[in-house]
Design a protein around this nucleic acid. Structure first.
Length: 286
DNA sequence: CCTAGAACCTGCGAGC
DNA sequence: TGCTCGCAGGTTCTAG
């Protein structure tokens, strides 16, 4: 479940169902799922064994499970199609089950990493003084992080020679925003996705950030966005925010503000959805 | 240094 | 029915 709200839904599920349990055994069924663990699958499995899981954390779309009494954590990224599921032992293996974690208790459930496209994965890393895994030190704070620096973000936008949607998806500037919530926030802010970042005034940046936060909080409140069973919480349940989307996936449907048919444009090997009337294209640069 | 584009995967639905 | 194509919510590497 890719973007921040969906990952946060998963994090909360792990906090409830997996935190404070001790790992008994780890089974890696597909080596690609642990490719970011450079020492290999056997090493990954061996190092987790016997450790107690702490309270899961998240930054942007990354989440991690600290191992108690160590300075290491299991880092997870769901990529495009990854799921972390808490399943009864008896549940049949999913078709794309990649990693299974069993626990040393009698709760009867195990943690499963399931991932159709294998863009996601698990890996073990050292953590810094702040608890952050070292390999994601370059990932910016996300907009729901109280320490996110709005002013620094605005200065970065002014400095860049790129367009606003690219910047929103740049995880080193602001993390957690993906294709859906970028389109939603831009629609709410009435900003065209190809607007140069250098043209944003301080109030416009503040307004846009406000919309990013609003749409993510609204999605979080209803369990995130899912169009199908690929994006689910740890119990396999879908969120309901898909029915509240104003831009994403609404090609040809009337804009909810002005009734103009929404458009879809190919963009960076994916799509951008926008209202051609509310979100005017920027003047061509000479 | 910065930015844009391709590459990495599997599966699904549309169209022929 | 079966094939091909386009498309999918992300990150990372490379070329310019």
């Amino acid at each position: 479940m890719p973007e921040l709200p969906e990952v946060e839904v998963v994090r909360r599920g792990l906090e409830r169902w997996v935190a404070h349990r001790t790992v008994a055994d780890v089974e890696v069924l597909h080596p690609r799922a642990v490719r970011r663990h450079l020492a290999g699958a056997d090493d990954f499995a061996h190092r987790l064994k016997g450790h107690r899981v702490g309270v899961p954390s998240r930054r942007g779309k990354y989440l991690w499970l600290p191992l108690a009494d160590t300075s290491q954590a299991v880092l997870a990224h769901l990529g495009m199609s990854g799921q972390l599921l808490v399943q009864p032992h008896a549940a049949p293996d999913e078709k794309h089950l990649r990693v299974r974690v069993r626990f040393a208790d009698a709760l009867g459930t195990e943690l499963r990493f399931v991932d159709q496209r294998t863009f996601g994965g698990l890996s073990l890393h050292d953590t810094g003084p702040d608890g952050l895994p070292d390999v994601i030190a370059h990932i910016a704070r996300d907009p729901l992080d109280p320490l996110f620096d709005d002013e620094a973000f605005h200065r970065a936008l002014r400095r860049r020679r790129t367009t606003i949607k690219r910047a929103l998806l740049d995880q080193s500037l602001i993390s957690g925003v993906g294709n859906i919530y970028a389109d939603e926030a831009l629609w709410r802010a009435r900003i065209h996705y190809e607007r140069p970042t250098a043209t944003l005034t301080r109030p416009r940046t503040a307004e846009l950030l406000g919309h990013v936060r609003d749409v993510m909080n609204a999605a979080l409140a209803v369990g995130g966005t899912s169009f199908d069973s690929l994006y689910v919480n740890v119990n396999g349940e879908s969120g309901y925010f898909d029915r509240s989307l104003d831009a994403y996936g609404r090609e040809g449907l009337p804009c909810r503000r002005c009734a103009t048919p929404m458009r879809r444009r190919p963009w960076m090997n994916r799509s951008s959805y926008f209202c051609p009337r509310c979100q005017r294209a920027p003047r061509a640069l000479s």
